[in-house]
């Protein structure tokens, strides 16, 4: 602890996050009669689903002490690419496959620059962000417009709007699957363990024989794959692909991870934290929209929550749960 301000100390901040969530839910239940309904939770999950999908991998990158700012651009790029191919006759499943591979290409590119060439991740992924977004705009322009909507096959929206058992939106299903996979990666696989080790002490990791470059490339590829897949899901759900949909996505993903207790210097964090962090963001925006509070106040509220959460992280000290 270097902070001069004395804050209450907790071993882990997960209880704090759960506390904040419970508090928000109580407040929202009291002030909005429509809050405590199944449909509303479905809405919240839909809103934060994309954040969770991307953050689950981006979080592991952050645990290694790196960062991926290109997720929003890769999401937009993938949505546009998918729409472009579908519009021009590529069968939807094949288009999804190609798009996922192309998205992973961005991730491998990131991983190579950061892991092998050792360029600072902020700069490297910022570069990728601009290139990918540029290509997203270019593809839309090749199609002759700003976004792609007209001429998409009717089945285009089938995936994004699919309801499991007739009532569970497909994004929620994916969120559950991906979160489970990453929980598994964190606890049970070498990849997860090495991620923590690299973030904790990169030099010791290298001297222990961990192939740091390989781990970083795999993680960036996973992050880009999930960003790409999210782009497909999102554009399929809306029935339109636009090159600007990923704007600020990287910020949201960052906020979700930091809220969830992931240390930006690496070595600490978990998918559980990401879920809780995303829940706070989701509840906040949902609540403010339910109450019809103006956009500008929403921004203020978002900033305040972020700072409070980081303070909470500081007070949680170095203990690992």
């Amino acid at each position: 602890m270097t902070g001069k301000l004395k804050l209450p100390r907790f071993r882990s901040q997960l209880p704090i996050l759960v506390g904040i969530i419970v508090f928000m839910m109580i407040v929202l239940t009291i002030i909005s009669p429509n809050f405590l309904k199944v449909q509303n939770f479905s809405n919240i999950l839909l809103k934060i689903g994309i954040y969770i999908l991307i953050a689950s991998a981006a979080n592991l990158i952050m645990i290694t002490g790196n960062l991926d700012l290109s997720v929003g651009a890769v999401l937009a790029f993938s949505g546009i690419l998918h729409a472009y191919m579908c519009k021009h006759g590529v069968p939807i499943p094949l288009s999804i496959l190609i798009t996922c591979i192309a998205a992973m290409g961005w991730g491998v590119f990131n991983g190579f620059i950061v892991g092998k060439l050792r360029i600072v991740p902020v700069v490297a992924t910022l570069g990728t962000m601009y290139i990918a977004e540029g290509f997203a705009f270019l593809i839309a322009r090749w199609d002759g417009g700003t976004n792609i909507m007209l001429g998409l096959p009717g089945a285009y929206t089938r995936l994004g709007r699919y309801m499991m058992f007739g009532k569970i939106p497909v994004i929620i299903v994916f969120v559950v699957i991906v979160a489970a996979i990453f929980l598994f990666i964190e606890k049970k696989t070498k990849l997860g363990r090495f991620s923590y080790a690299i973030g904790d002490n990169r030099s010791a990791a290298e001297l222990s024989g961990i192939n740091v470059t390989k781990v970083i490339i795999i993680l960036y590829a996973l992050s880009a794959l999930l960003a790409g897949f999210s782009g497909i899901l999102q554009s399929s759900r809306v029935g339109l692909a636009a090159p600007n949909v990923g704007r600020m996505m990287e910020t949201y993903v960052l906020i979700v991870c930091v809220l969830g207790g992931t240390k930006m210097s690496g070595g600490k964090g978990s998918i559980i934290g990401v879920l809780l962090g995303a829940a706070i963001i989701g509840l906040l925006e949902n609540g403010l929209n339910l109450l019809g509070i103006d956009h500008f106040y929403q921004e203020v509220a978002r900033g305040l929550i972020l700072i409070i959460a980081v303070l909470a992280q500081k007070s949680s000290g170095n203990g690992r749960n």
Binding site: S32, N34, K37, Q39, N40, N43, L46, K47, N147, Q234, R237, V238, L240, A242, N244, V245, E285, N286, N289, L290, L291, G292, D294, H295
Partner: peptide, 26 residues
């Protein structure tokens, strides 16, 4: 007039907002 919110000119953002709005007042 139930509510007026900033959709930022964006399709995706507007979709999320309207989901919440319809939840708040179906």
């Amino acid at each position: 007039l139930v509510t007026m919110l900033n959709g930022q000119g964006s399709t995706v953002k507007s979709m999320e907002i309207i989901l919440d709005v319809l939840q708040g007042d179906p």
